[in-house]
């Protein structure tokens, strides 16, 4: 451990998760929800990495690191699919609006 205040980063990780969770419920705009879910994910990653660094000694635990690496890549895939879905649902709503106006 190189003296990083791990308790601080644990708290920040929990705060990021909570902030993202609030964002998911706060706004119905799809893109905002995708951002919020990504922030929740970042919070979880921060928790995992801080816990990995807590192992004592100067070597962090590589297993949580591998899990977070996997998580980062899976998160971007989920984001890609979610954004396409958001596009499609947004398009339908737009069409509905047009129909109501005409």
């Amino acid at each position: 451990m190189n003296g990083a205040p791990l308790e601080l980063f644990l708290l920040v990780g929990a705060a990021l998760f909570a902030c993202g969770a609030a964002g998911v419920f706060r706004d119905a705009e799809p893109l905002r929800r995708v951002i919020a879910v990504n922030i929740m994910g970042s919070g979880v990653f921060l928790l995992l990495v801080a816990i990995a660094a807590r192992g004592g000694g100067d070597r962090p635990d590589p297993v949580p690191h591998a899990m977070v690496l996997t998580g980062i890549v899976v998160a971007v895939c989920a984001t890609g699919v979610a954004l396409v879905l958001a596009d499609l649902s947004g398009g339908e709503e737009g069409d509905d609006d047009d129909g109501e106006r005409s």
């Binding site: 969770a21 990995a52 807590r54």
Partner: peptide
């Protein structure tokens, strides 16, 4: 309600992770 929920989540999560044993029992 969303922010209250967030605050509850923050409290519970912080308590959970801070009460983990040190040093963490990992697979290092």
């Amino acid at each position: 309600p969303g922010w209250v929920l967030a605050f509850v989540i923050f409290g519970a999560l912080s308590w959970a992770v801070l009460s983990l044993p040190i040093p963490a029992q990992g697979l290092t």
